[in-house]
Design a binder for these strands. Structure first.
Length: 346
DNA sequence: AAAACGGGGTT
DNA sequence: AACCCAGTTTT
């Protein structure tokens, strides 16, 4: 029994029952793969159901507004995935008459579809023998073969892709690709893998050399930078507030937020008062304000730690583009804002 | 080659 | 606090 046969057999006995495993429809597989990028199955599952229900076909998705797509994506993170998903849906619907590309090379042309996702769709839907290499595959291969090349180096990504491609079962690339990922997800886990009940115990290099905990090797990323966000939650006497759409580069592109004052460090109420006095929206206006959260809310992204304060500003009238507070839940917002909206009694 | 890009779960 | 997740794109 070789590696591929063994792992495919393990899969047939241990795989989870997941909705995208009941279909070969490339639209559904594509949706699931984009949603699952850097996202655990349990987190992605409800979003997959929501997208399939809300957009039953690629044409429904293509005809939606980006705002609607972002709203449904709210809370899942990496919002470029949603923007690229929508752009690619338009491309498939309008340029390809709704017919998905049926091979790795053409799939790679879709925005948001890289090497992993193109390989996944090509193999799952069209039985093309292209190996997937995701975080699970890196872990399983580095341990089984005892490879300590950093998985996130360019040398490593090429080497592991080549190895995976050598190992793929050409007779059943779909099952094999899913098998090695599932094996990594539920048995050859990052921490406390179940080596004592592993079918590869005899031949796993890491297990036999006691190097399981040392593999895979990964180059450490830079520490997260701290940022200081002050959100201005305006409340007018006639029930309105202000939401602004984020634009340009950076986090949360095209999502909405309360007007933001970013400062180089955490600020006191005294310093905040100075910012407010200089604010264009409030020139010559009567208003009262209060700080919602005495301790900064720390919102942790992979590369930034956001120290956040919400400042409530009551004002008679707003001379700016406003929205009715009772429609605030229609807008796609970062979960940091969404949590505040749910928590705060307007 | 390195950094940017979210949010949630585990250890 | 560090690490990980069915990665991709930009710098």
């Amino acid at each position: 029994m070789n590696f591929s046969k063994n792992i495919t057999y393990w899969y047939s006995n241990n795989k989870r029952d997941l909705p995208w495993r009941k279909t070969k429809n490339p639209y559904h597989i594509w949706l699931s793969e984009i949603i699952l990028q850097q996202t655990q199955v349990n987190q992605g599952l409800p979003f997959y159901e929501a997208f399939v229900n809300h957009f039953p076909s690629v044409f429904h998705l293509a005809e939606a507004n980006e705002a609607e797509v972002l709203k449904l994506w709210q809370g899942l993170g990496y919002y470029s995935r949603a923007r690229n998903l929508h752009a690619s849906a338009k491309y498939v619907a309008n340029e390809l008459q709704g017919v998905f590309p049926n091979n790795y090379k053409e799939l790679l042309k879709l925005k948001g579809v890289g090497d992993y996702t193109a390989s996944a769709i090509a193999s799952f839907c069209f039985n093309e023998s292209t190996a997937v290499v995701d975080g699970n595959v890196y872990r399983v291969l580095s341990r089984y073969f005892g490879i300590d090349t950093p998985i996130n180096s360019s040398k490593g990504s090429k080497a592991f892709k080549a190895l995976a491609q050598e190992l793929i079962d050409g007779n059943n690339p779909s099952e094999y690709n899913q098998a090695i990922m599932e094996f990594g997800a539920i048995q050859c886990k990052p921490k406390n893998p179940d080596c004592l009940a592993c079918v590869f115990q005899d031949t796993c290099v890491a297990f036999n050399e006691n190097r399981v905990d040392a593999l895979p090797v990964k180059i450490k990323s830079a520490k997260a930078k701290k940022k200081y966000f002050n959100f201005l939650v305006f409340i007018s006497d006639d029930g309105k507030t202000i939401l602004e759409q984020r634009e340009g580069k950076g986090i949360w592109q095209n999502l909405y937020q309360f007007p933001l004052i970013e400062t180089p460090s955490d600020i006191s109420e005294t310093v905040f008062q100075e910012h407010l006095s200089a604010h264009s929206l409030l020139k010559g206006q009567d208003y009262t304000w209060s700080l919602y959260n005495k301790d900064a809310i720390v919102h942790k992204l992979s590369h930034q730690h956001l120290y956040t304060r919400f400042w409530i500003i009551n004002i008679k009238e707003l001379n700016a583009q406003t929205i009715p507070i009772n429609s605030i839940r229609d807008y796609a917002v970062p979960i940091l804002i969404g949590n505040f909206i749910e928590e705060f009694s307007f």
